[in-house]
């Protein structure tokens, strides 16, 4: 099929259990928020694609959620494969979710070497006047990890602040830094996804 394919960019969410990754995921999908994170509401949800219209180009961000695997075990290394971007999520009202990020960062650089990394402080609505994680903390962290972090965002899934802005910005940055790679994507792709054969090959079912 000679169609112009919209480049699809895989973006993964990383971070501790309970920082709001699934909430970000749900905001991304249909801009809703479910209080007291009811896990069943993400049951069966895997990843979601959404187009972003940039000045001269349309790309699709394909956002992936962990499926809750980080709760007790670890996320599979497969999760990271082929990722173009990783969003490190922590909760602004929970210092320990921030301090553990270096471990998640290590996983990202190990399994998704080429991914651009972004930092997202979620639950900005709970930040309050004496934040658990200060801007200075965030700045120090970014310095410590040798500028691996491209950009830092603050979001609130509860009221929706900053979510769309974050994804639009990520889409823009990915296009900028990957321009040549995205062009190549369509050419240099001799590995493939498997799918159902044409229906003609399948014996029809009489029931």
């Amino acid at each position: 099929m000679a169609m112009v394919k919209t480049p699809v960019l895989k973006v993964i969410l990383c971070g501790e259990y309970g920082v709001g990754k699934s909430s970000i995921f749900r905001r991304f999908i249909n801009n809703t928020f479910v209080p007291n994170s009811d896990r069943r509401s993400t049951l069966g949800l895997d990843h979601f694609e959404k187009p972003y219209q940039l000045t001269d180009k349309t790309v699709k961000l394909q956002l992936w959620d962990t499926g809750g695997m980080e709760r007790i075990a670890s996320v599979t290394s497969s999760y990271y494969k082929f990722a173009e971007a990783a969003i490190l999520v922590f909760s602004l009202d929970n210092a320990s979710s921030f301090h553990v990020l270096s471990q998640h960062l290590l996983d990202i650089v190990t399994y998704a070497e080429n991914a651009k990394i972004f930092l997202c402080g979620n639950k900005s609505d709970l930040e309050g006047s004496s934040p658990q994680v200060t801007d200075a903390d965030i700045e120090t962290f970014c310095e410590q990890c040798h500028n691996l972090i491209s950009t830092t965002y603050k979001t609130s899934c509860k009221n929706g602040t900053g979510i769309e802005e974050m994804f639009t910005d990520i889409a823009m940055q990915l296009v900028e830094s990957n321009r040549s790679r995205i062009e190549l994507q369509t050419l240099d792709h001799n590995s493939f996804k498997i799918s159902n054969p044409d229906p003609v090959d399948e014996p029809s079912c009489s029931c």
């Binding site: 049951l43 499926g67 695997m69 075990a73």
Partner: peptide
């Protein structure tokens, strides 16, 4: 790993 993710997505708990 792919099938493990499938299980997790459908509520399976991993340790």
């Amino acid at each position: 790993q792919g099938f493990a993710r499938l299980s997790a997505i459908y509520g399976g708990t991993y340790m």
